[in-house]
C-alpha cells in the first residue's frame, strides 16, 4: 500500500490552484469593534490567568512581573468576559477612549 508521503504531488513552488480555497492566514482587525475596554487594577490582580484562558480572542498576556496583564488592542473585541470571570474583580470595563 502506498504511504501518503510517497505519493507524488504536482506541487511546484508557485502554482495555480483552480477552485475555492483559502491559503493566506490573516486576522480581522476586531479591535475596531470595541466600545469598552478592560482595565486592570494591578494590585488586585493575582496573575491567575483565568481572564486569558476565557478571552475569546486570546489577546491577554499574563506577565509574571511588572504590569500583570497586557492586552493586544488590535484584537480585543471588548466583550468583557475577562472582567466578568475575574475571581478578584481586578478587571473593569471602561468606555473605549477613556482611562489611560
Amino acid at each position: 500500500m502506498e504511504k501518503q508521503q510517497d505519493m507524488p504531488t504536482s506541487t511546484p513552488a508557485k502554482r495555480r490552484v483552480l477552485g475555492p480555497c483559502s491559503h493566506i492566514l490573516v486576522a480581522a482587525h476586531t479591535g475596531s469593534w470595541r466600545m469598552e475596554r478592560p482595565q486592570v487594577e494591578e494590585e488586585a490582580c493575582i496573575r491567575c490567568g483565568i481572564c486569558s484562558k476565557y478571552c475569546p480572542t486570546a489577546c491577554i498576556t499574563v506577565n509574571k512581573e511588572g504590569c500583570p496583564l497586557e492586552f493586544d488592542w488590535h484584537y480585543c473585541k471588548g466583550c468583557g468576559i475577562c472582567a466578568n470571570e475575574c475571581p478578584r474583580q481586578a478587571l473593569s470595563m471602561i468606555p473605549e477612549g477613556s482611562g489611560e
Partner: peptide, 30 residues
C-alpha cells in the same frame, strides 16, 4: 502552501469575525 500575514494564536488567527462574547474561538483554539 499556507502563507502567514499574521501570527496565529495557536492554530487559529487572532482576529476572527465571530460575535463579541462568542466562545467558539476558545473551543477551536483549545
Amino acid at each position: 502552501m499556507l502563507t502567514y500575514k499574521t501570527q496565529p494564536k495557536g492554530a487559529v488567527s487572532p482576529g476572527i469575525n465571530t460575535c463579541q462574547g462568542c466562545m467558539i474561538d476558545v473551543i477551536f483554539r483549545n
